[in-house]
């Protein structure tokens, strides 16, 4: 029927497992976005989707096409690289922006800006 018929059973099982676990991890990460109470707690949820979900799904794809040797798996490697490098940067910047806004609006429960130590400007 398709390229998947040529997949040997052990590879097919591994691909299935990696894909299902990866999708489930992503689902749990997004569920955390829904269930966690405040913004700073929600900031932790997408990292599960990226560090767990993306890597596992891309590994499934790499395994599948490396066994089949039907196409070059460079895209997946690059996706893993980009996502693991860029997501922390986004979340860090978003966290800093939120902290800045919360301090600007003087909301409760947000740590103050540290005072400069005595003797310094």
């Amino acid at each position: 029927m398709s390229h998947l018929t040529d997949l040997p059973p052990w590879a097919a099982l591994l691909v299935c497992g990696l894909m299902l676990i990866g999708a489930a991890t992503t689902l749990i990460g997004s569920l955390g976005l829904l269930r966690l109470p405040d913004f700073y707690a929600r900031l932790h949820a997408p990292t599960i989707a990226t560090s767990g979900g993306t890597i596992l799904l891309c590994l499934a794809s790499i395994l599948c096409f490396a066994v089949l040797q039907s196409r070059w798996v460079f895209h997946e490697v690059l996706i893993i690289f980009f996502v693991t490098v860029t997501t922390p940067v986004t979340l860090m910047l978003l966290g800093q922006a939120t902290l800045y806004r919360d301090r600007f609006e003087e909301r409760q429960g947000v740590p103050r800006k540290p005072k400069p130590a005595p003797g310094e400007e």
Partner: peptide, 19 residues
């Protein structure tokens, strides 16, 4: 910073360079 933020459960927010 990247390692801390990439680990689920910890998120880097601010670093005070002076202190």
């Amino acid at each position: 910073a990247c390692v801390l933020t990439a680990t689920p459960g910890t998120a880097w927010l601010e670093y005070d360079r002076r202190q």
